[in-house]
Every structure is written in structure tokens, then in C-alpha cells.
Design a protein around this nucleic acid. Sequence first.
RNA 1: GGUCCCGUGGUGAAGUCUGGAGUUCACGCCGGCCUGUCAAGCCGGAGGUCGCGGGUUCAAGUCCCGUCGGGACCGCCA
Length: 580
Amino acid sequence: MRTHTCGALRLSDIGQTVSLCGWVARRREHGEKLAFVDLRDHTGITQCVVDNDVDVRSEYVVRITGVVRARPEGTVNSALPTGEVELGECVVEVLRKADPPPFPIDARADEVDEGIRLQHRYLDLRRERMQRNLRLRARVNSAVRAAMEEQGFVEVETPMLVPSTPEGAREFLVPSRKEPGAFYALPQSPQLFKQLLMVAGVDRYYQMARCLRDEDLRADRQYEFMQMDMEMSFVNQDDVLAAVSHSVLAAAEAATGVRPPDIERITWREAMERFGVDKPDLRFGMELVELTDVFASTEFKAFAGAASIKAICVPAQNTVVDISSFGRNQLDRLTDRAKKIGAKGLVWLKVTEDGIESPVAKFLSESETAEILVRTGAQAGDLVLIVADSWMTTCEVLGQLRNDMGRPPVHEGPYRYVWVVEFPLFVGVSAETGQPKPGHHPFTTPHPEDIDLMETDPMAVRSIAYDLVLNGWELGSGSIRIHEPDLQRRVFSVLGISDEDAAKKFGFFLNPFNYGAPPHGGFAFGLDRLVAVLAGEENIREVIAFPKTQSGTDPMTNAPVAADPRQLAELGLRVLPAAT
RNA sequence: GGUCCCGUGGUGAAGUCUGGAGUUCACGCCGGCCUGUCAAGCCGGAGGUCGCGGGUUCAAGUCCCGUCGGGACCGCCA
């Protein structure tokens, strides 16, 4: 039907008779004998000069046949790649009339209520921004696949109907028709299957895997999302990181045209010390500054005896917040924020030309104040925020404030990838059992140097678990798995899981290991998040063709909908009346 | 489960604090004019359950309570 796309024509095509197909983006009428019709498809826009009276309106689908000609002098549109030419002597065929769209099919729809965009997603996706995102995503997918294949990974598909597993995220359940009362679960990840593929000798597995988790939605979380899931045998951590890095960097290059440098690596401990979070955004400074020793023998009661005292310096030159406008009100609000995050309080110091201004200034000795300024490097106009608490709380509170005060928008600044390694094996304590909880999952290998601490000081044990972080977004995580039963038993023991419990909960998964499990490890990263950052989008919904709203509905299809009673009967289900 | 923000012709906003006739602006839509525009221009017109329900009041878009929808976040996401 068409000889060219709407973004294709250039001066070199002048004289050709061509046919274009697309949607009417805009029509500028100058009386019956002259109208400019901007024809749009996913490649761009071409101006067509129509000199007969044809009724074409916004979003009509048309085929226009005409002759490519140079635009008259002074009428070139430098904003369009096709702006030096136009289509003349146009014959217009209306392929399909269209109602006026509920919102403009251009950049103005960025301002339209997202519910309305989702209700008419097929129109929203017609827009240049969304087409760009869809196509960027496709390039990333393709590059990731190619990079994995190139490294000898074999794509294996795993089932969507799986048994429910005891640990982890809440699952979506699917009732069994043949066995009323029994349910499948939709996979929150292919974790078990990919490890069994290692037992099966697949050696290097990958999959673009759809994962489903029935947890509350966020800007970076949907019920269903895609992971590049991989697992490999006879490897150590370096092998896994290298394989994933290769894939992620190839994806980044495909998306942006620039191959990022090798991905740097920091330990979890260092990430917490310097940035106060386990997913640090390396695009900006404001790192946490150690002050504990400065106050070793302080008179200031709030600092005396604190396990950890740290500070961040918010520079006056700061694109995110304007410190100079900070009055008492904003500073009080910062303190409230710190308390909400878990600090007992927050000490602030405004640095001025002739010293400092702070409610606690009179409690600090001259040498203490001087040392604060030296260590933080604070200059006049800067704001210093200090927290004194347990090491963890101090880091976390300042890390959050650092992000609040300094984190640039996602589309700004360079891409800063970082591997965070040596995550703690255990994190926190289970409210039910009083035992430590697994940091990653219960099959993660403890760090060899720390294995002997497992029974005596479990919370100090590091693991061979790692996260990949990009500009403060957690892209994914992985670990070297335990393949050896004695070690697995020791970890279970710390978790408070007896041999009997383990057999009951994980038997179907662990018994196969007895037939010969190779040492193995793997990783999975979220495609949606990677694509969102590469696309400069704050929200993964912008890179998903048909996403759900925060409450888990789809305004276009109205999903979820009540089930037909006959369907329920067939499944042996009855819906309880809503509790009142 | 919780905190906060938003809901006003098809779209985006102002009006809400401080109650007084559905008032205003821009885009879109319909009609007319218009031969070089390009998010064309000019003239005219249509289009509303101010999310929904209840309350206070002589009077509610505006105040109060509830509810629904959208968004950001906490919890949750091994």
C-alpha cells in the first residue's frame, strides 16, 4: 500500500511519485483549494499539500499518493527530519474515518491524567514518546538475548502454572478445575526451575521470564514484570558478574548508542558507609562523613556514647533543593523526616560567613565544630546534617536524606552502574520464630571467610550475594547457591528450620540435589526497570505497553472482573460476601 | 493496613483557604472565512450531575463526614 514511511522522505527523493500511509496528525486549512495535512506513522511526519477539497480530520487513517517536491524557499521546517520536502499533487484515500481522540496524540498528552491515557492506551501508544519507549525496549530485549546466546546460554522456558512455595512474595493463585480446592500458583520467579536445570546439566540457562507477585504496586513495581533470568554451573561470583555485565552493557549500548565503562564494584558495607543505602545513586556526591571519633569525649548529651555519628553536607550549589531558602520551618520538617525514618533526632548546622548557625551550637566545643567543617568540607551557605544512633540507623537515615536532598531526576546525569557485593547472609529477625531471616534467600552461600561465625555471630556473616544497581535503582540480584547438603543444613539451622521442616518445605527442590548438583550461581534483573532508566522514565508503566494502575486494575479492559457463577461452580469455588 | 496529594464541559488549568447565579483561560470539537501553513490565523457556536452519597447553611464547586477513582510513599516486595 505504501512506498515509503512518513519519516523517510528527503531532498534526494524529489520527483518521485510515492504513497504514504498513516494517521492525520494535523490539518491546516487555507480555504477550499489549499490544506496542509501532516501525516504521521511511527517513523515521523510528512507534510502533504492537498489542493482539492477532501474531508480529512484528526486521526483519520489515510493513504496519500503524491509527488515529492522541495518546499518553497522560506517554508522549510527545520524541526522535522522531513522538513525540507513535502508531498504535492496529493490524492487522498480515506481508509478509515476516526472520532476525535479524547486527548491530543502528541507531547501534550504527557499532562493528561494517566487513568485516561491507560483507558485509551492504544491512542497513548500512538504517540512518539511511547513508540520510542516500546522500540527501545525491543532493542534492549534483542541485545540482551544476543549477548546471552553469544556467551553460550541456552534459553529454556519454565512453566507458568507451578506449585505454591512457602517463602517469598504473595502469589497469584489459579484454581484447578480437575481437582477442586487445589491451586496452582503463578511464578514469582523461575528460581527453583533454573536451579534444577543446573542439576539437569544445562550448564548455562537464561530466559526472558515473566514474573508475577501479588504485592502492592509502585512506580517501579507491577504485578507482572519481566526478568532476564540466568543461572550457570561450575562458576564463582566473578563469572556470574562478568556474564551479566556483558549482557547489561550490550543492552545499554543498544539503547543509547554508547557502551558504558566496566561496571564498578563496592561491598554492601561500603555502600552503607558511604551512601547509607544498599542501592546507591553514584551520580552525585554528598557522601556520608564519619564523625564518631570526633565526639568520643563530647559534652553534648545527644552525641555522647552514640555508636555511630555521621553527617552529610548539602551544598548551597545544588540543583535539587535550594538550601538558601531553608528557614526554620523546612529545617523542622527535615527533623521530622529523620525521625520518621528512625532517627532519635537530627542536628543541623547552617554554615555562614562567620561561623555556624545551629540550635545546638552552644553545646559543641570549638574544636568539635571546627572538625565538623573540616571533615565535611562545608563552605559558607552549605547545610550540614548530623545523625547519632546505631550504625545501621545512622547510615539509613542519612542515606535517605541524601537521596531526598540531592538525587537528580532519572533522565539526568550519566549512567552509573555498580555491583554491590557481600550482602549480609541474614537480615533482621523473624517476628514469629525469633530467628534470623535470610537476606537474599535460604539457598545463598555464606562468604567462605565468615562460615565459622554462622553459629556464634550470624548477623555478621556475609554472603556471596550481589545486587546490580543503576542510578539508585535496584535492577536485580543474585547469588552463588549452596549445592552441598551439610552447609545447607547449617544455614537452615540458623534460620530455625529443622531437617524435618526443610524436607517438608523444600524437599521437592532439594532432593534432586542428591542426584548430583553442580556448584552454581545466577542472577536476574528487571527488564522494565532497566528500560525505564535508559528511556529516562521515572515510572515503569511508561515502558510497559499495557500496565496496571496502582490499585492493580486495567482501565482499558476493566480487569479484574467478577467471575461468571458458572465458571466458579465448575472450579468448585464460592465467593464469600464482603466483610462489613 | 497506613500517610499525603489530586478529581471542575472531550483535554489541561484557575476558582475551594475567605460559601452568594456553572464564572474564567488555553487546547480540542462544530460552522463560516481564508492559496504557504507547520501545536496556522480571524469570526461565530455548541458542549457541565464541579467523581459519587450524606450533612451544615437562607445559600455548597467551595465547609464537615463518608465513599469511589487516580498518583507518590510507608508497610509489603525471601
